[in-house]
Design a protein around this nucleic acid. Structure first.
Lengths: 157, 157
DNA sequence: TTCAATGCAAATATTTTGCAATTCG
DNA sequence: CGAATTGCAAAATATTTGCATTGAA
């Protein structure tokens, strides 16, 4: 049901981006990139590690951290903050989109956000602040998790 | 320049709230409460510790963590997530207000947020998600820090 | 008097750094 | 071949827990 089979177009673009910035294309990096680029879910470094290691067993957790650091640097992924963790990432989306996150499974969707330009202008005017940026995230339950919660209301094995 | 002199009205309300929920009023708690309730800035536990210890030297950092946990539980403070840290807090504000934060000094201001009800409805409709809540924060530079950056463009001692 | 609360120290959990071995280009 | 990269182990950080002592009610 997911589109995370195969290598994915996104992965290729990221590989090229790394190369174009003078970074070497190692197997470790490719494994990490494939996992993150094709994930439909928010991923923490430890999760990336677990998945990527299935493809490239000799991978070290440190390399996951260092690779994700580079991906963030290149603007390919962005950090997601949640109640439980603040070191989780999703692929970046171009444009003025915002994140909708499933609190159950971590699935993410970008949505076209309301135009907040006016809001910012008003706030700058009212407060004297100069605005630099903003975060907006909506939390909820994705359709799949809603269905599952319907079937087994409280966690069963 | 700050209004954080004296004990403050907020502090009293928080003290009462703690008492009303069956918590004891210890000097350690009062010290922590006074710092957090009267702060104009986002504070991390370690910062609260440093300030509160000036009033109550035998305070332990653990007590700061535990007290702030209770304050959050009672809805008196809320967590603020920033690039650098995700364990910082500000007094909660009633109503549908959102946070504006100075990235320089941590000063916070609540502003009347745009009504996002329609946005949520649209997103639920488009995605099939059930929405539970949202985070919205604006980052910027407060007037004081703007002025200071004018005077000394790069950090001087 | 009693039990919640404290604060030390130790334990966890997480992320970063040092460095010799490896490997891409 | 040379420099970037890796992954181990160790260090640094941040937060939580265990427990004997203290103190609020």
């Amino acid at each position: 049901m997911t589109r995370s089979e195969g290598v994915g177009i996104e992965s290729q673009a990221w590989i090229f981006a790394l190369r174009d910035h003078g970074y070497r294309l190692t197997d470790a990096r490719k494994a990490v990139v494939n996992v993150v680029a094709n994930s439909q879910r928010v991923l923490r470094p430890a999760e990336v590690f677990d998945f990527a290691r299935q493809v490239y067993p000799r991978l070290g957790l440190v390399t996951v951290y260092r690779t994700m650091e580079k991906l963030e640097e290149l603007g390919l992924i962005q950090r997601v903050h949640r109640e439980q963790d603040c070191q989780a990432f999703v692929p970046t989306c171009s444009g003025h989109q915002h994140l909708l996150l499933c609190t159950q499974c971590g699935k993410y969707v970008y949505f076209e956000g309301a135009d907040l330009t006016n809001l910012f202008a008003g706030v700058e005017n009212d407060t004297g602040f100069t605005t630099q940026g903003h975060w907006m995230q909506i939390f909820g339950i994705c359709p799949q998790c809603q269905a599952e919660m319907q079937e087994k209301p409280m966690g069963e094995s």
